[in-house]
Design a protein around this nucleic acid. Structure first.
Lengths: 220, 220
DNA sequence: ACCTGAACACCGTTCAAGT
DNA sequence: ACCTGAACACCGTTCAAGT
């Protein structure tokens, strides 16, 4: 059945093709499903061909993460309106993109970051915060808070398992005497857990607070 | 050098010992470093002995996650004061515990949750929110927001790499023409990124908003 | 019932060889 | 310079065997 592979033409491979295909495979089948052999097969190439462009599998995972991060939207396209509306838009776009790349979230959490960050969205967001008059210290803290919340929300609700049924079933199986409140709130909890608007709810809590502490006047 | 293993006594092994040792090894050496063979060696047992208590390695990872979740503090010990002070305490304890178990965070993000949750802390937190007068729907959303933020913060700042030096170095290596704001804020960003108080800053933003929307009176 | 060693299929990677 | 197949050490797991 498996026929002998024709020799691949030269330069069919490069770091970016490897990274893009690796990320695609991981988003589809899960991070553990990515093997050198499966990746090479998808690229139509012998496993060892990859090693001409990359030294280890770790380097492939790093490249895939970097590739995914670089392509996240910066959300600054429709940059009009109040600063909090723009921040809102940036974060909604960022969160939506993370949910579309569950393996990227896994890679971000599982592997040392070496300081990497979604630089496009970060630049846009920090810019708005500074323009709104926040000090560098507060702008930094606000930015990191929003980043962490988006990551955590995307990570926890990552679509790796059929969610609603499972979530409710587990909640209802809890011993009601030890967890009376969880049992009582099983339905609204399950509904909110995988609801599209849950992320926006928390985002608006953060934005309301930031607005309340925003400086009245802009510095130079 | 490696001497022949003495035959292990019976019943030295059980699911909980396997789960506890697995989590300990992963927290120390990283999730990928856990192998059936290394785990068995640590337990003083032949690799195949594990399979009397567990069917697959996946089941070991599930057991380790469950074990870690069950032992997270519920933070309800010093449950006095205003409801927001108690929520604050619950979340600070939860976040601190997550940071002490980096592999637990990785397991939570990397593997299907099947609806699992840190039930002790969730029960305590939901209880306080309901007692404070929030509706089931709002209490659920507030709880999930706090949970997601704690997870994201712990995940992103997980101590897997020497942080401060790396973070700042990366920020300062960015092209200043494309990322002027990131470059300008490199110092406060790096300082806040791995600061103990960063999590509390965002937590207080959320709590301030929740307090502003809290019902004045408690229902029955 | 519980622990063990040998063996198998699969993975990441080294090596020597093709073009 | 870039692609390839064979081979090696290591991993999860099956099997048959010990006590």
């Amino acid at each position: 059945m498996t026929q002998r592979r024709a020799r691949a033409p030269r330069h069919t491979l490069d770091r970016s093709a490897i990274a893009a295909t690796a990320l695609e495979l991981m988003d589809a089948d899960g991070v553990p499903a990515l093997t050198i052999r499966s990746l090479a097969a998808r690229l139509g190439v012998a496993p060892m061909a990859l090693y001409n462009h990359v030294r280890t599998k770790e380097e492939i995972l790093d490249a895939a993460r970097e590739y995914g991060l670089a392509r996240l939207p910066d959300g600054a396209t429709g940059a009009t309106g109040n600063w909090w509306d723009r921040i809102r838009e940036i974060n909604l776009a960022f969160h939506r993109a993370l949910r579309e790349h569950p393996s990227l979230v896994t890679l971000l959490v599982a592997r040392p970051l070496a300081g990497q960050a979604p630089t496009g969205a970060a630049e846009a967001q920090l810019r708005v915060l500074v323009d709104a008059g926040f000090t560098p210290e507060v702008a930094s803290r606000a930015h990191l808070t929003l980043l962490h919340y988006a990551i955590g929300s995307a990570a926890w609700t990552s679509p790796r398992v059929e969610p609603p049924a499972v979530g409710r079933a587990v909640l209802e199986r809890l011993p009601a005497d030890r967890y009376p409140t969880l049992a009582a709130l099983a339905e609204p909890l399950a509904a909110a857990s995988y609801d599209d608007k849950q992320y926006a709810y928390g985002l608006d809590l953060l934005l309301d607070s930031l607005r309340a502490t925003a400086p009245k006047r802009r510095p130079a």
